[in-house]
């Protein structure tokens, strides 16, 4: 499959340490996902689409990769140790590792601050959204 980003499914699988072939299509990840309605592609689709090599579509879907809460519900409730959240993370990393692709920049921060916002929120968002 031609890719706009030169990212292969093998790379995604390797970054994630996940083998999508373990999936048995039960859908429990997407049933558990608390961010389901925010995402275009859902946890089980990440598994199936990585298996099919449809990496570009996933990388282009901001509404999918930046709406995962990393809450690990899909990991916890998967009966086959597939760990869909790791695939979402790997796709997100493949995007933000591209030059100029940081989803959050220091310039964005002041507008986001409020007096109670814990440092943890900033640190976490930085880890998730930037390189």
């Amino acid at each position: 499959m031609a890719s706009n980003y030169d990212v292969t499914k093998e790379e995604i699988e390797e970054i994630a340490g996940v083998n999508p072939l373990r999936c048995m299509r039960c859908g429990r990840c997407s049933a558990a996902c608390p961010s389901f309605d925010n995402m275009k592609y859902h946890p089980h689709q990440f598994v199936a689409m990585v298996e099919n090599g449809e990496i570009d579509a996933l990388m282009e879907s901001e509404s999918s990769i930046y709406k995962c809460m990393s809450c690990m519900a899909c990991i916890e409730r998967c009966p086959r140790q597939v760990q869909p959240a790791r695939l979402i993370e790997a796709v997100r990393l493949a995007v933000v590792r591209k030059q100029g692709q940081n989803h959050l920049t220091p310039d964005d921060i002041p507008a986001l601050l409020d007096p109670d916002l814990p440092q943890q929120a900033l640190v976490s968002a930085y880890r998730k959204f930037t390189k």
Binding site: P34, S35, N38, Y66, K67, M69, S70, C71, A73, L104, L112, L117, A121, L122, S124, A125, K128, F129
Partner: peptide, 19 residues
């Protein structure tokens, strides 16, 4: 034991609010 929305507060406040 369901997520509060976590760091998505920086992405879209509506998500943690709903959670």
């Amino acid at each position: 034991n369901e997520c509060c929305g976590g760091y998505l507060t920086l992405e879209d406040k509506a998500i943690p609010e709903k959670r």
